[in-house]
Structures are given as structure tokens and as C-alpha cells.
Design a binder for these strands. Structure first.
Lengths: 201, 201
DNA sequence: TACTGAAGCGGACCGCCGGTCCGTATCGTA
DNA sequence: TACGATACGGACCGGCGGTCCGCTTCAGTA
């Protein structure tokens, strides 16, 4: 029952692998052009070390993704409004979607790698479950909306990594333009009828 | 410049391959558990024949998808309202999205295979381009909407194959329930303010 | 500091899959 | 029937995710 602390070299290697994977995903265009052997080499580590630490390729990507997501997660769980728990749903929902979008804009390749990593759809990852549940809960406090469960899925679908990559990456849509469009779309769903000024914090 | 007609055996094999792939994708749960060798064997054909006819795995899946999509495509391009070109945008947009959703419900595994086939995001396929362009065009004829280009993407994102699989497949959401939810969501975007009765043709 | 067993390491190795090659069989035509 | 062109198919290849096992390094003990 006693938790054994991992050894120092294990921790050092784990960090090295994270850094290496991060760099490689950012450098290469296509996520699956990054092989496990590549990451191991870049990290100065044996391939088996990767698999021992993370199980398989999906595990590695998931772990990296969760790590990068951590700041946003804590901002949502204990930060100030409009992202934090003290905000009213009508302002928190757009803030949350904007945060997700910004994260995917900033970590395009990583998000892409996660979502299109063959085994296991994005919907089985627990971070998706978290976002969806939170979003649904917030929507439930806003009157007059369509089915909240589906609506939460549909809104999150508008921030899918490959869509972000398609618009911001390939078609060159500027970051703030896309943020504004998502905000407008969200406002429309929420029934906010005032005109035209999407937030731009 | 003269088009050479393909030989009979080539045509026969092509059809056999389609049938085999269709059956296999429907039978297995995960699309990438279906290997090219599997398809070749099931079709009673050599592996090289697959690659000669379709180029690569993606080409085969795309060709099959387009073939299955053909009825809907023609219903949209030359059928009667509400799907056909004579319908008003306010009724054609929901009809179109419903048709796409139904198609993905009926061809879940195939759609999944196409969208998560690693090379090339779904957004580079020409059938997506077609749906998106048509949808955007229709939205442009409806006043007071958010950015039409983005809205078209976002609406289509709500019918993504893996989302459909997640809701209808794993969570067991009934077909008509999901259709109604998508219809409600769409209506909300279109600004249709009348209450509560989503179509169920 | 020397000892020691356990935790961790790494690269050779495996099975599988997408994709290619080339000798052979089949088609369509005269 | 004969013959060129077209298509066939299974052996083959390179590369990837994942595993195995002999070796190294850590950290507690005296």
C-alpha cells in the first residue's frame, strides 16, 4: 500500500521525453511523421524507456497534452472570472470556449496529434469528459436552450483541432478573427441578442 | 486524348473490392483493424490490385465513401424540396444537415474510417468542400447570421463521424433523438424562434 | 565507503502493415 | 488462332509500434 517514490533518473528522463516530444511535434507538420524512435533519440533515451513510462504512443501524447493543459485547467477550476467558478454562466461559457480555442491555437500540432491518434476517439479521453460535463452544467443554468448535452458537444466540436488547423493553419485565418467568429457563434446559441461586439480580452 | 475503356475483369474486381470493404468495415468495430490484405482476401483478389485501382488506402476509402454518398448528393443537386435546389434556405439548411447526419448514422463505420484515416484531414476531401460551400451559400441568403463561412464549418462539425459514433454508438442515443437535437440546435442558429417542434419526417 | 538488491535502462529483436515489383494470365482484336 | 496490351497476384521490402533481457545506476545499510 506504500507509494514508492520514483528514482531521480526516471524523473529526469520523463522530463526529457516531454521536452523532446513537444519540440518534435512543433517542428514537424504532420503529427504521425513523429515516430517513437524519433522522440527517444531526441530525448537521448532508449525506446523502451518511452513505453515503460507511458505505456504506448497514445499514453505519451495524452500525458503531454494533460501537462500542457494544466494551466488552463487550474484557471478554470480556481481562477478569477470570467473563466473561474465565480463567473455567471452567460459569461463563463464563452470564456471557456475561448480558452479552449486559444489553447488549440497555441498547441495546434499537439492537439492534432492527440485527436487523430488512431486508437480511441477523442471522446473517450477524460479531459474531453471534463470540458463537456462542465459546459453542460453551465448550460443547464441558462434558460431556453436546446438539449444541453448535445449543445455542449456541438459547441466543443467547433473547436476541433483539425478544424482549427484547417482555418488558422492552412487558410491563414488570423487568430483573433477566429476567436471573434467562435464568440459570435456561441452568443447566437446562448441567445444573446445584443449586436456585434465579440469580446477581445 | 482518347479515353481507354477499362477491361471487364478490372471492373468486376473493382466492384468486388467495394463490396468486400463495405462488409468488412460494417463487421469490425474499429476501422483500422481492417487491413488492406483483409479486404483483398475478402474480395478474392491480390493485394496489388487494390493499390493499382485506388492508389492507396485513403483512395480506396474515399472512393467507397463517394460511391455510398452518391444518392444523397444527387438528391441535393437535383431532387425535390426540402433537400433539392428549389427549397428555401430556411428549410433547406436543416434538411441538408439532417441528411448528412442520417448518412453518417447509416454508414457509421465507413464515415469513421474516412475521417480518422491518418493522412489528410477530413477538411481536404472534396466532398467536405462541396457540403461546406453549399451550406455557406445558403446561409448567405439568410439575414442576420454570424460569419457564414465559420458557421457552416461549425454546423458540419456537429455531425462529425466520431461524435455520431460516440452518441449513437456508445451511448446508445436513439437515431431520431439525435436528429431532433441537431435540428433544434440548427434552428437556434438560424434564428427560428418558434417553439419546440423539431421536424421528424 | 563498500555492499547489494531492486528499479531503471537501452538497443536488438519481433510481428504486422502499407506499398511495390515483376513474371504470368487474361482480355480484346484481327 | 495469334498477338500486343492490360491487368493480375503473391513474394517482397522498409518502417513502425511494441517487447525482451542482459547490463547499469540508484539509494538504503553498516
Amino acid at each position: 500500500m506504500t507509494e514508492r517514490r520514483p528514482r531521480k533518473d526516471a524523473l529526469r528522463n520523463r522530463a526529457a521525453v516531454f521536452a523532446a516530444a513537444d519540440a518534435l511535434f512543433a517542428r514537424r507538420q504532420s503529427p504521425d511523421s513523429v515516430t517513437m524512435a524519433d522522440i527517444a533519440t531526441e530525448a537521448g533515451v532508449g525506446k523502451a524507456t518511452l513505453f515503460r513510462a507511458f505505456g504506448d504512443r497514445t499514453g505519451l501524447i495524452r500525458a503531454l497534452y494533460e501537462a500542457r493543459l494544466e494551466p488552463i485547467r487550474s484557471a478554470v477550476e480556481q481562477g478569477p472570472p470570467p473563466l473561474g467558478p465565480d463567473a455567471e454562466p452567460l459569461e463563463r461559457v464563452p470564456a471557456l470556449l475561448d480558452a479552449v480555442l486559444c489553447f488549440k491555437l497555441d498547441n495546434r500540432h499537439l492537439a492534432l496529434a492527440l485527436e487523430q491518434t488512431g486508437s480511441g476517439s477523442p471522446y473517450s479521453a477524460e479531459h474531453y469528459e471534463r470540458w463537456h460535463t462542465l459546459l453542460r452544467t453551465l448550460l443547464e443554468r441558462i434558460p431556453g436552450l436546446p438539449d444541453r448535452d448535445f449543445t455542449a458537444h456541438a459547441l466543443l466540436a467547433a473547436t476541433r483541432a483539425d478544424l482549427v488547423e484547417h482555418l488558422a493553419g492552412e487558410k491563414g485565418l488570423p487568430r483573433d478573427t477566429m476567436r471573434a467568429q467562435l464568440a459570435e457563434f456561441t452568443a447566437r446559441i446562448l441567445g444573446v441578442r445584443e449586436n456585434s461586439h465579440p469580446a477581445q480580452p
